[in-house]
Design a binder for these strands. Structure first.
Lengths: 341, 341
DNA sequence: CTGAAAGCGCTTACAG
DNA sequence: CTGAAAGCGCTTACAG
């Protein structure tokens, strides 16, 4: 069994060996490790020297049994969405010059998957959890938050008290998209949304879409189509939407990723963008800027969201227990895909 | 300090409470948990009932102190490269119906970052480590492998004995790309490679490129240009390569991601693809298939790589200690970007 | 300022 | 088949 391999594996240097080498107590070494108060400079440097000499590294799991593991767990639904990389840039910036490391878990875009992923993080003694694109209900989120400090990104729960939320104003983001398309002369503007009755950001974007359509007196053209987020499903849905009989003049997509699929299908069908169909995405990921895409999109500052969420999480870990709810104002970035004028 | 928040946090149900509830010993509960031998059905079901009743969840960190954590650490250099998602699909498939979970760490594309990321995994008691796109030297890899079972994806080290490697034949992949371009009438074929003197897969691809160019009697046109993998750097390099004076007829890019940048810059400059410039990428990620890209690419079966690497890692965890080196044959997928004939 | 001792939640021989 | 006890590598009161 595991014995063979394990036996041969090099034993770790422990805090006890460092203590022996430095001729101090184990407790003293622990204090140096944690930068705790009440350690003389002489003792500290003696211990540091022994640590270096022996190549000591603290075992996070053991530290976690009593104190912290200095690890933040990030739970994310879909590795294929490049927006996640933007968020992570902000997270990394916030964590620079701290002892914390991040570990990423994938929630597989289902409620069960999300619960399992967060539970796994709690079981593995993360000091705090950053949950991205949550789709589970308030009850579960509260339960998570009772287990560990919790901050969500991309989930609206303004009345939550046990955890913090970080969002852009998604309703406003959708309104920016619709107003922009309307200003460019598009009237039959459809929305290609995510097939989810649990995502609050999707709900908000749909509300914004409807509101802006009404405001622009295009209420009779309101059409919301839902699709799963797999490339395959998105493609099928796009193909259906672009059939000549019912083709909208413009499509507002809930994320860039899906908008790129629509551009692809439209291109295949010989449709010209933006003349035959206008397209606006969401997230303003790096793909929008490629000349072959030229995709207009709603920028929600992923980097800022990641940065702010991480700051809030650290505060929570340090003991804050009043909730904070942070909301960023989105911004439209117009490119070729929607500029008919 | 952390006290306030921590004090309020709900205490976990421990193995001891389960034992009390089921009126058995702690050791008995542990055995049920691990599906160990020597437990009667009666005892097992009694314990299971108590676990469910109390909502018991084992604490991985505590298990790890003596046994396994049932966690596999995956270290990866760049979240923006979509090829990683393909690998993860294979990993997840291999782990289905096992107790293992994955946790992903980012190595920031530097040697120091890679060492730090792997060390962090070891400190956090992962049962095994999957290292993707390694750039560190043999000595460090051996040191990692002495700490934990280790398998690499995308790193050639055929003589390694302490860890397994999983790769496509990168030399062959590059040769496929060049032969395909040559067959399509391109002669001045340049390679846009990664700025790295430590990546063995890059080295192999460059060797393959040179070999195929010689074979096609295009040796005088050999040109290898290096760029960092940030979108910005890639863009600057592409712009330089596409200047009229020195423009190659075709560019073979070390990864799709970079090829998309080249398509973007070429499109901006008004160059037609594939007439004015032919392009082939590597990895055959989902973006290749978008009609606006139509990017020919070398498929290296990311899903298979992930699946096989995970299987090997589990074997290592279970005790295997002879090295295995798995190599997949790459395959060219031709699309519009290179089809001049 | 320093250290001995208890304990975190598990697993592992070992004895019965 | 079952259980009492030691121990994994740390941190945390507490005493000096």
């Amino acid at each position: 069994m595991a014995k063979n391999g394990a036996e041969k594996r090099s034993r770790r240097v422990t805090i006890r060996e460092v203590a022996e080498d430095a001729e101090v107590s184990v407790a003293a070494v622990s204090k140096v490790l944690r930068d705790a108060y009440g350690v003389s400079d002489a003792l500290r440097s003696k211990v540091r020297a022994s640590m270096d000499k022996l190549g000591y590294r603290p075992l996070a799991a053991a530290r976690g049994m009593r104190g912290q593991t200095y690890t933040i767990g990030i739970v994310q639904p879909d590795l294929r969405n490049p927006f996640f990389a933007d968020i992570m840039t902000g997270v990394d910036n916030a964590l620079e010059r701290t002892q914390y490391r991040t570990l990423i878990g994938i929630s597989q875009s289902s409620t069960d998957g999300e619960v399992a992923a967060v539970d796994a993080m709690i079981d593995r003694q993360m000091d705090g959890i950053l949950l991205i694109g949550a789709i589970t209900n308030r009850g579960n989120l509260d339960a998570f938050a009772r287990g560990k400090p919790l901050v969500t990104i991309g989930h609206h729960e303004p009345a939550a008290t046990l955890f913090d939320t970080v969002n852009t104003n998604d309703q406003q983001g959708a309104m920016l998209a619709v107003r922009h398309l309307a200003a460019n002369g598009y009237k039959r503007i459809a929305m290609l949304s995510l097939n989810s009755d649990t995502s609050t950001i999707i709900a908000e974007r749909e509300i914004g879409y409807r509101r802006a359509m009404m405001e622009a007196e295009l209420g009779r053209h309101i059409q919301v189509v839902h699709s799963a987020q797999t490339p395959r499903e998105a493609q099928i849905t796009a193909r259906r939407m672009l059939e000549p009989a019912s083709r909208p003049e413009a499509i507002f997509c809930w994320t860039d990723f899906i908008a790129l699929e629509v551009i692809s299908v439209a291109t295949e069908l010989g449709l010209r963008i933006p003349q035959d169909v206008g397209i606006v995405g969401y997230d303003n990921t790096m793909y929008c800027d490629f000349a072959q895409n030229g995709l207009s999109s709603i920028d929600q500052s992923g980097e800022l969201l990641g940065l702010q969420a991480t700051r809030l999480l650290i505060e929570r870990i340090k003991g804050r227990d009043e909730a904070e709810h942070f909301v960023v104002t989105p911004r439209l970035v117009a490119r070729r895909s929607s500029s008919r004028r």
